[in-house]
Amino acid sequence: MNSEMILPQISWRRRATDRLMTGLSILTVLLVLLPLFAIFAYLVIKGIGSINIAFLTQTPKPVGEPGGGMANAIVGSGVILGIASLLGVPLGVGAGIFLSEYGRNRYGDAVRFVSDVLNGVPSIVIGIVAYGLVVLRQKHFSALAGGVALAIMMVPTIARTTEQMLLLVPQSIREAAYGLGVSRWRTTLSITLRTATSGVITGIMLAFARVAGETAPLLFTAFGNQFWNLKVNQPTAALSLQIFTYAISPFDEWHRQAWAGALVLIVLIVSAVAAVRIAVRHGTLAGA
């Protein structure tokens, strides 16, 4: 030991370990980004070539005939998601309002815990439940059943984000309204919720994006359909279902259309998420 040296030099082994670990974590980043880029590259390359007017306007052609499209599936997805939002958004926002404005107690804690648990229930299990609830009673598959399944999935996400956004609204804003003799319900809707609007919408869009690509819960609820159908109590095609059916089929033409469908689906979801990001950045809460 050199007595003049107060601190020993960091040994080459420790230095090498440090370098090695830094290198390894950079490697992990690259390994994780690789499939992401691969997926997007394939989607774009394989998808764009197959998207044309027919794809966006026609229904599927029978096996063996070329051409046809997914117009009915795109519209069907819209119908199912519309039903899901109609059911899930009010319930989710209401539950969020309960959690933030009336749920600072044991009951609220219970609801919070249950909605976190509900968030982790596999989507296929939700499908079984919607099957029992709607399909068994109606005796046939329907857009309504699919909508119910997706709505159940939206509720916990919306409830928790709505709660968080409402909690960001300062108590003094609520007090200002109370002080004006505005009743509690009116304050909650016209002041608190209005102040948090952009955040609440963010939550709704995230939940929407999450269920927009769901397939499993639709398999035995909406079921799919090769033809046009706008009746909510009939089997209905959905983009994700169609992608699944085509992907596992043995026909090249259908594989091509599956890629195109996937690209359309991704574009719809990513633009929803991006719209949310922009909305949040210019959101009212950002300035408050």
Binding site: E175, L180, G181, T187, I191
Partner: peptide, 30 residues
């Protein structure tokens, strides 16, 4: 509270409302 107005320690205008709407809020919301 409609008879008793209150002004708070920190100014707390409604952040999403215009000046007009802030002043009119008490009446409009009622």
């Amino acid at each position: 509270r409609r008879r008793v107005g209150m002004v708070f320690q920190k100014p707390n205008p409604f952040p999403t409302m215009s000046i007009y709407d802030n002043v009119a809020a008490g009446l409009k919301l009622n």
